[in-house]
């Protein structure tokens, strides 16, 4: 038999195997995944996840600035690292969590904390009883904006680059804008000027504040909802 035929058959066959095992089979297994609905006496009382189109703009900014090269969005279980003990999430994340994400930003690197649940009030990146020096104030939208503009004003040892181009410094015309940053020290703008977020920054923060994958799921042990899930 012609050796080059063997060669071609092997190359084509091995590619087909690789594609089948790592692309087609996972697609078949997960392609039919549906949101988890919880019914109570025939009425749907809960559904998760819900498609949230209002934050798509912010998601686009997240991708365009490459946030996911330093921030992951996946929580591993207790056997695989300290993600949960660290306060990044109450449970591991599973395929269903990303059901409506066209491009899930799972990430492969953590130069910054995981952001799967950063919009949740329970999210923390410091040990619970930490020295207040390291413990920032509540991470609400205003905090996130400040952090984007000048990370070290809110976390003194932050390694995140500033994103000043998502903001503009403008002259205060009449009243101070409601969303102007409360800057102090060297970052404070000249008198009569204020720093306000551009629409991109606002969209990005709205997206960040929407991130919450802590909803109980039946496939995650210890997080199943009380009512029988279907």
């Amino acid at each position: 038999m012609n050796r080059s035929l063997y060669l071609f058959a092997a190359i084509i066959g091995s590619f087909a195997l690789s594609c089948y095992a790592l692309v087609i089979m996972p697609k078949c297994q997960l392609g039919g995944l549906q949101p988890q609905t919880v019914e109570d006496e025939g009425k749907i009382v809960d559904i998760y996840p819900i498609k949230n189109v209002s934050v798509e703009k912010g998601r686009a900014v997240y991708a365009s600035e490459g946030c996911f090269y330093c921030h992951s969005q996946q929580i591993r279980d207790e056997q695989n690292g300290t993600d949960i003990e660290r306060g990044w999430g109450a449970r591991r994340t599973v395929a269903r969590d990303y059901l409506f994400e066209k491009k899930p930003y799972l990430g492969s690197m953590r130069l910054g904390p995981d952001l799967s649940n950063v919009g949740s009030a329970k999210w923390r990146n410091e040990p619970e009883n930490e020295d207040p020096k390291y413990k920032p104030a509540k991470r609400d939208a205003a905090w996130q904006l400040l952090h984007l503009y000048a990370p070290r004003t809110v976390i003194s040892i932050s390694n995140m680059p500033p994103y000043r181009y998502l903001f503009e410094t403008k002259k205060i015309g009449g009243e101070r804008s409601a969303d102007a940053l409360a800057l102090t020290g060297p970052n404070k703008p000249k008198p009569g000027y204020e720093v306000v977020p551009k629409p991109e920054a606002k969209a990005l923060v709205a997206y960040l504040m929407s991130l919450d994958k802590s909803h109980p799921l039946k496939e995650v042990k210890g997080s199943a909802p009380e009512v029988a899930a279907k």
Binding site: A10, I11, S14, F15, L17, S18, A21, L22, M25, P26, Q29, L30, Q74, R76, D77, N80, G81, R92, T93, V94, A95, D97, Y98, L106, S108
Partner: peptide
């Protein structure tokens, strides 16, 4: 032959520990 058979099946190690089917990572 070992290369052609196995090298293309190693991809899912990049997702180890992640929200993907466990068999996939085990295979890789």
């Amino acid at each position: 032959w070992a290369f052609i058979l196995f090298a293309g099946l190693t991809g899912a190690v990049r997702l180890s520990g992640g929200p993907v089917p466990v068999w996939l990572v085990t295979l890789s």
